[in-house]
Design a binder for these strands. Structure first.
Lengths: 154, 154
DNA sequence: ATTCTTGCAAACCTTTTGCAGCCTA
DNA sequence: TAGGCTGCAAAAGGTTTGCAAGAAT
């Protein structure tokens, strides 16, 4: 099971530590995001959050997501191939994604394997890159394919 | 050195084989794209192509890029993290990218290493994924970091 | 009390589309 | 010649911004 989402106290502290205020909108956005298994778009988060905060606006959802990304408790994922909208992820640490080429949805991958993939990359390559002026600080691995249609997928 | 870009004859054949026509705009877009080392946005391609075809329109550049992606001679890369614009790549086969977190530019990585990374992924995981309904057909690996500022980068 | 945040609407940017005229096969 | 393609302009998403009123510290 992925990772325990932050509770309100932890999230309040994280916001506070960054000099940001903890508002009901930010908490609600985080809660809804953490509860959605397929990393949703801002619009999807908006629709979900309306159930608890009917008067929230889409702009506020964008701002809240931006704040959560800024403090590092939420990640923003790129769109399928440059088109469409961004997707958000309540996990902050490195992990892998599976992107369904049919629906565009993104799923978390179990991370029992290879948590430090980059250490396996050819050390010679790393040396080579450094020499060329590339300082590598992280990586992103995404598996592509098709998800059996049987439920949570659209 | 990466890969030889297609010459006009090869590109004409590729377009023809797909039932598409070879136009000066499509050839020019491909040429400019292949000549740019840091995978450019549609707008950047547009500006570059104007030097040879001053009356080309941005819409045509988008359509040409779409055609080139459709026949598989150009790849479309996702935007940095969901925001901004897509970037294009005149290479079609699997390879790796380095994304500069400062400028957003994307560079090709030398591919001397690990051309079949996915085969190294835990076979157990692959089995696990299949059981869960994920059919993996490809993957995307992107290194993130900072590029020494010394030239082609903005 | 002060400063940050919200919500609304308008602005913005990237990408797509409709259509008349042009060009390729 | 026929049908795809271009170029223009307008439309369509998705995301950001300006600002007055409201909320958090």
């Amino acid at each position: 099971m992925i990772q325990a989402p932050l509770d309100h106290d932890a999230l309040r502290k994280a916001l506070e530590a960054a000099g940001l205020r903890s508002t009901s909108q930010r908490l609600a956005v985080y809660d809804q995001l953490a509860a959605m298994p397929h990393h949703p778009t801002a619009e999807e988060v908006f629709q979900a959050v309306r159930s608890s905060l009917p008067k929230i606006s889409l702009a506020t959802v964008y701002k809240a997501l931006e704040a959560l990304v800024a403090i590092g408790v939420v990640g923003r994922l790129n769109a399928a191939d440059g088109a469409g909208s961004a997707r958000y992820d309540a996990r902050s640490e490195d992990h892998y994604h599976f992107r369904c080429l049919r629906t565009g949805t993104i799923h978390d991958l179990p991370t029992e394997f290879d948590p430090k993939l980059i250490e396996h990359l050819d050390p010679l390559l790393a040396e080579d890159l450094r020499r060329q002026g590339f300082q590598v600080t992280g990586y992103r691995l995404e598996l592509l394919g098709y998800r059996r249609t049987d439920g949570r997928d659209a």
